[in-house]
């Protein structure tokens, strides 16, 4: 089980959280104008990176806010926590 530090609530057990998958996926601003391939890339394709990656977590049984965790997908070591918007993501 991971020990995740919520930026608002502090360190809590993984069971309080829900993982929202890969971070930094941006919805096309004009869906009508993108090709099917681009839409499929946004909707389904994932980098599924082996090693350090950024992912979204939701403190479902706490403050109910979203944030971003930098985590190694091999060692599971958490490298850092970011609030949403810090790296330019839409909040």
């Amino acid at each position: 089980m991971l020990l995740i530090t919520c930026p608002w609530c502090g360190p809590r057990a993984e069971t309080e959280f829900s993982c929202g998958g890969e971070a930094g996926i941006v919805r096309p601003t004009a869906p009508d104008t993108v090709s099917d391939a681009e839409w499929a890339d946004y909707l389904f394709m994932r980098s599924n990176h082996r090693g350090l990656h950024r992912e979204q977590w939701w403190h479902a049984h706490g403050c109910r806010r979203w944030f971003i965790v930098r985590r190694d997908t091999v060692t599971y070591r958490i490298d850092g926590i970011e609030k949403l918007g810090a790296a330019g993501e839409a909040t």
Binding site: G21, D41, M45, R46, H49
Partner: peptide
């Protein structure tokens, strides 16, 4: 490890491991 091999050929797959 399919996504890792796919990345070697610049392909993206709709997979999560």
């Amino acid at each position: 490890h399919s996504s890792v091999i796919a990345a070697m050929a610049d392909l993206r797959l709709p997979l999560e491991s």
